[in-house]
Design a protein around this nucleic acid. Structure first.
Lengths: 243, 243
DNA sequence: CGTAACCTTGAGTAATGTCAAGACTGGTGG
DNA sequence: CCACCAGTCTTGACATTACTCAAGGTTACG
C-alpha cells in the first residue's frame, strides 16, 4: 500500500459500502498534504478549531480524554484508513484529543474539501456517515464492556476486537498480532489500572487463552477467549456489503 | 408541539445546523405512521433488520445492551426529536435494543424514504451525519465517565448532562426536572448497582448539591455539582449554530 | 386495601486500586 | 562493546470502593 495516496481511505470506506468509480475518483482527487508524526504526538487537541481532517495512511492513533483530576480515558482506537477527525471537521471545536499511538503517516485534507465532496457525491456522504455510525456502534460496545464486565472479561473482549480490527485493516492472520499498546494504555482503554491489567493478562495466559511476548499477543484459544469476553463481532458491522 | 407531525425532527436538527426551507419541506413531507407505545416497550430489538426509522415525537427512550451473563448496560438516552434508529437504518441489522423509557409517541419512516431524502438533499444528509456525530461524542463522554470517575462524580456528571439535555429538548428551566429513571436504570447507565446509586444520591443530597422528591431532581448548587462531576458541556456541541 | 414496583438500610464480601520496590528491555553515548 | 538510562513490566502488601444478599419500608395504582 502506497502511503502517499488516499487509496487507503477509499479502501476503508469500501469495507462497508460500495464506492462507485466517480466517487472514487473524486476521493482520490481530494487535495491533501502528507505528514509523518512520531509516536505520542498530538494529532488533534481538545479545543482545536477544525481546519482540516486527517486520514491515517499508516500507523495507529487513539482518541483520549483528560479528566479534571488528571485521569485519562482512551475512548477509541483508530487504524489505517480511518479519518481521525471527521468528527471535528463537522463539529468545529474538538471535544477530545487524538494522539499517535505509533509513528504515523497521515494525510491532511482541508475541511472545505471534505464538506464539498460530501455535498456533491451522495455516495461519499453516505460512506462518511456510515463510518461515523460504526465508530458510534463501537463506542456503545465499549460502554457496555467497561460498565458491566469485570477485568478479565473486559480484557478478553478488547483482545478479540483488536484481533479482528487489525486483521481487517492490516491483512494479518488474526491469530497473532502486535498490540502497540503498553499495559498502561490498555488500562486507560478499559478503565482499570496498569497493575491490574498486568495481573489480568497473566491470568489469561495462565488459563491458556493467550500467549504473550512483549507486546505480541497470540490467541491460543479463540473460542474460549470470545467466550470469556462475551464477544460477538456483530457491532463491528463488517458484513454490510452482503446486501 | 403537535405530536403528529415531523416538526419535532426538524426542530431537533435545527438545534445543530441550518435547515433551509426546501429541506424542511422535504422532511415534513416524509411519509410516516404514528405509533404510541407504553413504557418499557421495545422499539428496536437486537438482531432486527431495519425496514423503518423511528423518530421520537414525545417521550424518552434508551439504547441498551444485554450481556451474555444477563447484565444490562444502557448506552444512550434519547429525547424527543431524536431519530432512534438512523443507526440501524444504515447498518441494516441492529446491534442493540431500543426501549421506551416513558410512554412514547413515535413516527415510523420507511428506510427507503430516509435514504432517498439524504441522497437528494445534501443539507439533510449533513444534518443526519451531524446528529450521529453528536451521539458519538456523547458516547465518548460516557466512556470516560464510566471508565475513570468514581460513583459520586459519575452520578453528578450524568445529572448535569440530563439537566441540559432536558432543558434543550423540553424547554424546562433546567434547575428542577423529573428524571423518568428508576435507580436501577440509573445504575445501568453508570455501570453501578442500584444499591450504590441509592447511597450516592443520598450523599449528593446530604452535601446539599441536589434535592430529591421521588424522581424529581432539583439542582441546588449547579456550580458545585458540575465541579463534582468534572462536567463541561462542550461535548454536547450545542453551540454549532454560532458560525 | 392489596399488590407490585421501587426505595432504603445494614452487614459482610469481593474486586480493584494504591503504593512501593525491584527486574527487564531497548536505545544511546562514550 | 559496554554502561547507563528511561520506560515498561512484575510482584507483594495493604486500602478502598463498590457489590451482594437480605430484610423492611414506601409509593402508586387498580
Amino acid at each position: 500500500m502506497d502511503h502517499h495516496t488516499l487509496e487507503r481511505l477509499v479502501c476503508k470506506l469500501r469495507t462497508r459500502c460500495r464506492i462507485d468509480a466517480v466517487a472514487e475518483a473524486a476521493l482520490l482527487a481530494l487535495p491533501f498534504t502528507v505528514r509523518t508524526m512520531p509516536r505520542g504526538q498530538y494529532i488533534v487537541r481538545e479545543g482545536d478549531i477544525a481546519r482540516r481532517a486527517c486520514v491515517l495512511l499508516d500507523g495507529f492513533a487513539y482518541r483520549q480524554k483528560i479528566l479534571d483530576d488528571g485521569g485519562r480515558q482512551i475512548v477509541a482506537l483508530q487504524v489505517p484508513g480511518d479519518a481521525v477527525d471527521l468528527q471535528n471537521t463537522l463539529l468545529k471545536v474538538a471535544d477530545h484529543n487524538v494522539q499517535a499511538l505509533t509513528a504515523v503517516v497521515a494525510a491532511e485534507i482541508p475541511r472545505a474539501a471534505i464538506l464539498d465532496i460530501a455535498g456533491k457525491h451522495p455516495s461519499v456522504a453516505h460512506a462518511f456517515w456510515l463510518d461515523t455510525l460504526v465508530d458510534g456502534a463501537i463506542a456503545f460496545e465499549w460502554i457496555a464492556n467497561i460498565g458491566r464486565r469485570d477485568a478479565r472479561r473486559r480484557l478478553a473482549h478488547l483482545l478479540c476486537e483488536c484481533a479482528i480490527r487489525l486483521q481487517v485493516s492490516g491483512g494479518r492472520d488474526g491469530e497473532t498480532f502486535t498490540l502497540p499498546l503498553t499495559q498502561e494504555q490498555l488500562s486507560d482503554i478499559l478503565g482499570l489500572t496498569g497493575v491490574h491489567i498486568n495481573r489480568t493478562l497473566r491470568q489469561l495466559a495462565a488459563e491458556g487463552l493467550i500467549a504473550r511476548d512483549r507486546q505480541a499477543i497470540r490467541i491460543l484459544d479463540d473460542r474460549a477467549l470470545r467466550n470469556a469476553g462475551g464477544f460477538t463481532p456483530a457491532y463491528l458491522h463488517l458484513d454490510l456489503l452482503d446486501d
